[in-house]
């Protein structure tokens, strides 16, 4: 009975894992298919005549390289701003006592209840007025800082023992040095978690870049891919190859930083 139960669990989990992974294999297989095999019925799971033209095709037929670079710029800048500004704010909220601290903390937490989808209209007019419409800066700035990041960094700074702060003050370091040299290095796991959250969030973000970006040379990968479905009406092959290319960085980053990602989810879930 015990053994039967264990076997059942493993079978169930394996089935689940198959369902989770199979669509990716289908995507990968499609990306190597030639035209004649694409709509073959019954569908072939492993391409009989694997071709790589789809990959070279997507690079040449659309400015895919530019989409890629744009996505990297958006993700890198967002990560930099988010980690820097959240750790400054988290440090302040965790290590100082000052007038209005609770008010500011409450304000920051409250912003987590404002859905992106609700504020895109006023944000669009804001970005328009700031002359940032159809620019990567317009995509980056509005969501560069989010309440969750500050919340997470505050927790990280709260967990540092008082003695370390006192030792630093004894050595006569300034507040800025205390933050940068003494404490920030101790929050590395949280910074790593915030980095991967921001990366996955901005890399996959769609609605806001779709609203802001108008010219193809400014498209991010997601906006570019969605526009390809429109123009290459049935050219599955290029879209498949493009999707594979766009997903590879996410999988690589995730596999290398899975530990921090899971830690971040645990922190978020136990708030």
């Amino acid at each position: 009975m015990k053994l039967a139960g264990k076997t059942l669990i493993v079978l169930l989990l394996t089935l689940g894992a198959f369902i989770a992974v199979a669509p990716f294999l289908w995507l990968l297989s499609t990306s190597f298919k030639g035209t004649e095999e694409l709509f073959a019925f019954p569908p072939s799971l492993i391409p009989k005549h694997g071709v790589t033209q789809n990959y070279s095709g997507v690079w040449n037929a659309v400015p895919f390289g530019i989409y890629f670079i744009n996505s990297i710029i958006v993700a890198a800048t967002s990560i930099f701003l988010n980690v820097l500004i959240s750790s400054l704010a988290g440090f302040s909220l965790a290590r100082f006592r000052f007038r209005g601290r609770n008010f500011f903390f409450f304000l920051i937490i409250s912003t987590m209840m404002i859905p992106k989808e609700v504020i895109i209209i006023p944000l669009y007019t804001t970005v328009l007025r700031m002359g940032m419409a159809d620019s990567l800066l317009g995509v980056i700035l509005p969501f560069a800082v989010e309440g969750f990041g500050i919340y997470m960094m505050r927790l990280a700074f709260l967990s540092i023992p008082k003695e370390i702060e006192e030792a630093g003050i004894m050595d006569g370091v300034s507040s800025l040095q205390l933050w940068w040299r003494v404490m920030l290095p101790m929050t590395k796991p949280s910074m790593a978690a915030l980095t991967i959250f921001t990366f996955i969030g901005t890399w996959g973000d769609f609605l806001w870049p779709l609203v802001v970006l108008k010219s193809p040379e400014h498209y991010t990968l997601q906006v570019g891919l969605s526009s390809m479905i429109g123009t290459f009406v049935d050219n599955y092959r290029y879209v498949a190859a493009g999707s594979v290319l766009a997903i590879v960085p996410v999988i690589i980053v995730f596999l290398f930083m899975q530990k921090y990602f899971e830690r971040g989810i645990f922190a978020g879930a136990s708030k």
Binding site: G16, A17, A20, V21, P23, F24, L27, I200, W203, G204, F206, L221, Q222, L225, S226, S243, A246, I247, V250, I251, F254, L255, Q258, F261
Partner: peptide, 13 residues
């Protein structure tokens, strides 16, 4: 890891 691949996949893809 397997169950997480769909989570990190961009919604567009």
């Amino acid at each position: 890891t397997f169950y997480f691949l769909p989570v990190i996949t961009p919604i567009v893809i």
